[in-house]
Design a protein around this nucleic acid. Structure first.
Lengths: 206, 206
DNA sequence: TGCAATTTGTGGACTCAGCCCATAAACTGG
DNA sequence: CCAGTTTATGGGCTGAGTCCACAAATTGCA
């Protein structure tokens, strides 16, 4: 077990010859030229100067490339929840999601939201999308359950997936709105506010 | 263009030598023995006495086999919505979803809900699940938009995905509850009621 | 009876994602 | 110089999904 990260200088072993960023950049160029569906992992890797297998040292799946920006912002969700303070759970979740959404301005549209129609094999986008949604739902449900001690597990999970899928629908709408889309946050707020309202008060404070 | 279905007797062309049911039965046996992940399309087809390619004459994807029962019940959703009458849109949706859910008793658990952990390639279950959810969301959003003339598209879509994902979470909970799970409908009702409440009144009648 | 049209079954070939493995290369510290 | 560690690479493999050409089975029509 070595506590050092993969980039510290004094670390044993062969240093990395590439980076996630290089592969992302290579992929972006190819996606623009050919679309995601017509781009193979082999092409991305060679374009970045590495071999196909090396690609899998940096990403677990091709579809991860569609979600890089989203994944980065979602890493902040736990902190955003903690920062939301001891308020009512649905309010805390709403504030935290708006905080994460505030990362996305009109020019920062994730690949995942622009390549909706042009996916290769059946439901590659769907798979990657739902796997992310359920990971975050697990997080949110745990948060709510901890805040509302003894709350019904189904209620926590129901709220988590409902609010997240409403937010996702808002992101799709936002991405499809064209150049005048503005910021993501207002879209998300409009979509999740009714969900939060419907669940407000159902998570009794401990 | 031939209006006759694939089973009418007077239809030209070679009659079908197999059926969806035969393939489903073959698949069920193999899934019980080997799990979904360890069963190949080739095995299912041979077990049903046809070739691999013929499988794709009856199903579009291997994962369709996980959703046969669900798909059959979901076909009733449009009729259930129409039957829900001219009541408030969120009420109509709630009643229609409970109607569909009433198909599922304690012994009728779809494969999709029992093979959650044992999928083959990354996110095969997720892909098939989300593709179904978004198809039904499209339906629901259209229904609500028609009922509430001039309503915000984002609000309609947000409600549709929120209520459906809450129902899906309920189904997961239900399937995981073991032999004493009872009927699906109460689970669904508990999960979607708050969502419907949050959106109630937001779809002004025309 | 024969012939076109139509529909299904089938085998073969292909692409590509994802996975595993053995080996080489590049670095560390002793 | 050596042992340990980490990355890079090539090779091979499985399996889903697609395409295509051709055979087989049925229809209606001449």
């Amino acid at each position: 077990m070595n506590a050092r990260g993969p980039d510290e200088p004094g670390r044993p072993g062969r240093p990395r010859g590439s980076s996630r960023e290089m592969l992302q950049e290579a992929a972006s160029e190819l996606f623009l030229e050919q679309t995601y569906a017509r781009t193979t992992i082999e092409q991305i890797a060679r374009h970045a100067g590495v071999s196909r297998n090396t690609f899998f040292n940096y990403f677990q799946a091709k579809s991860d490339l569609l979600w890089v920006e989203v994944d980065v912002s979602l890493e902040r969700l736990p902190a955003a929840l903690r920062a939301a303070g001891p308020s009512e759970p649905t309010d805390a979740v709403r504030r935290a999601l708006l905080d994460v959404a505030s990362d996305f301005g009109p020019a920062r549209v994730p690949w995942a939201l622009t390549q909706q129609e042009l996916m290769a094999t059946t439901g590659e986008l769907e798979a990657s999308a739902l796997s992310r949604l359920s990971a975050q739902a697990h997080l949110l449900a745990g948060f709510v359950a901890r805040r509302a001690d003894g709350a019904d597990g189904l209620l926590c999970r129901g709220f988590a997936v409902a609010v997240l899928s409403a937010a996702a629908a808002a992101a799709v709408e936002w991405a499809g709105a064209g150049v005048a889309r503005g910021n993501l946050a207002p879209y998300v707020d409009a979509a999740i506010a009714p969900v939060c309202e419907g669940f407000r008060g159902r998570f009794s404070q401990p």
